[in-house]
Every structure is written in structure tokens, then in C-alpha cells.
Amino acid sequence: MEGLAGGQHSQQLVLENRKKLKVTGVRHVGSFNESEIVLDTVLGVLLLQGENMYITHLNLEEGILEVEGLLHSLVYREAAAASRRGKNILGRIFK
């Protein structure tokens, strides 16, 4: 992947008719089921939500993931914000 200014990497999201998605820049698949897929990408954590989703192609060496199903949303979360949120939840549990 080609680098951008500031040490960031490029990433592409190609969505076809909300039914087929190709993502580049994927580092790791955190979790997945039919309604939610969590990806660690070069630009942050990417949350995919939808129905009847399944991974049709995954190549972590090349950083490519393809998903089919009905996609409802694609949301980036900052990794640091996600970990802070987890600490807040634990803090509430142990109060």
C-alpha cells in the first residue's frame, strides 16, 4: 500500500448496491457474525453492520476483505476511543 503524508496508508472501500463490499488496508478481523463485522484497518477500527453478511474473501497478507450481504452501515471508530470506552465500562462494574 502506498503511504500518505503523516505515515498513514491508503484504503479503499468499494460498495456495490449495498450487497457487496471490498475493503483494502485490512490488518485483522476482530470479530464477525451475520449482523456485525469488526475490522482493524490501516485507518482505524471499521465496524460493518447489516444482515446476512458473510466474508467471501480474506487475504490479510494483501490486506483485502470482501463481504456479501445487506449492508446497513460502515462506521470508523478510533482505537483509542474504543479502549477508553472499555475502561469506563469496567470502572462502572467495579464501583
Score class of each variant (00 low, 15 high):
residue 54 Y to M: 14
residue 28 H to C: 08
residue 62 E to M: 04
residue 79 A to R: 09
residue 30 G to I: 15
residue 69 G to W: 01
residue 35 S to T: 15
residue 61 E to W: 13
residue 87 K to H: 13
residue 44 G to Y: 00
residue 17 N to R: 14
residue 26 V to R: 04
residue 50 G to E: 04
residue 14 V to A: 10
residue 42 V to L: 03
residue 24 T to A: 03
residue 55 I to M: 08
residue 67 V to W: 04
residue 88 N to A: 15
residue 75 V to T: 12
residue 50 G to W: 02
residue 42 V to A: 02
residue 74 L to I: 05
residue 54 Y to N: 15
residue 15 L to W: 06
residue 66 E to N: 07
residue 46 L to K: 01
residue 64 I to T: 05
residue 34 E to N: 04
residue 64 I to N: 02
residue 70 L to G: 10
residue 6 G to P: 02
residue 84 R to Y: 13
residue 85 R to F: 13
residue 4 L to D: 03
residue 86 G to W: 08
residue 51 E to V: 07
residue 88 N to Y: 15
residue 7 G to E: 00
residue 50 G to P: 04
residue 39 L to V: 01
residue 44 G to E: 02
residue 11 Q to K: 01
residue 67 V to G: 03
residue 95 K to E: 15
residue 90 L to Q: 07
residue 38 V to C: 13
residue 93 I to K: 01
residue 42 V to P: 01
residue 66 E to Q: 06
residue 73 S to W: 07
residue 75 V to D: 09
residue 24 T to M: 03
residue 93 I to S: 03
residue 66 E to D: 05
residue 35 S to C: 14
residue 48 L to G: 02
residue 77 R to A: 10
residue 17 N to L: 14
residue 33 N to F: 05
residue 60 L to F: 03
residue 87 K to R: 14
residue 76 Y to I: 04
residue 51 E to G: 06
residue 45 V to Y: 05
residue 15 L to T: 05
residue 23 V to G: 05
residue 24 T to N: 04
residue 55 I to C: 07
residue 21 L to Q: 05
residue 33 N to Q: 05
residue 80 A to I: 14
residue 38 V to A: 14
residue 42 V to G: 01
residue 27 R to V: 06
residue 9 H to R: 12
residue 2 E to Q: 04
residue 70 L to K: 12
residue 38 V to R: 11
residue 72 H to E: 08
residue 68 E to F: 09
residue 9 H to P: 08
residue 13 L to Y: 07
residue 36 E to N: 09
residue 28 H to R: 09
residue 55 I to V: 06
residue 46 L to D: 02
residue 24 T to D: 03
residue 70 L to S: 10
residue 60 L to S: 02
residue 6 G to T: 03
residue 9 H to S: 11
residue 58 L to K: 06
residue 39 L to F: 00
residue 89 I to E: 09
residue 59 N to Q: 06
residue 59 N to M: 04
residue 32 F to V: 08
residue 20 K to R: 12
residue 7 G to Y: 00
residue 91 G to N: 11
residue 85 R to N: 14
residue 69 G to N: 03
residue 25 G to Q: 01
residue 26 V to K: 05
residue 70 L to W: 13
residue 92 R to N: 11
residue 47 L to S: 10
residue 14 V to T: 09
residue 73 S to R: 07
residue 94 F to W: 11
residue 48 L to D: 01
residue 82 A to N: 11
residue 11 Q to L: 06
residue 81 A to F: 14
residue 36 E to M: 12
residue 15 L to N: 06
residue 81 A to Q: 14
residue 87 K to Y: 12
residue 56 T to P: 07
residue 46 L to W: 01
residue 40 D to W: 04
residue 51 E to K: 04
residue 48 L to T: 02
residue 81 A to C: 13
residue 4 L to K: 00
residue 68 E to C: 12
residue 68 E to S: 11
residue 38 V to M: 12
residue 24 T to F: 03
residue 79 A to V: 06
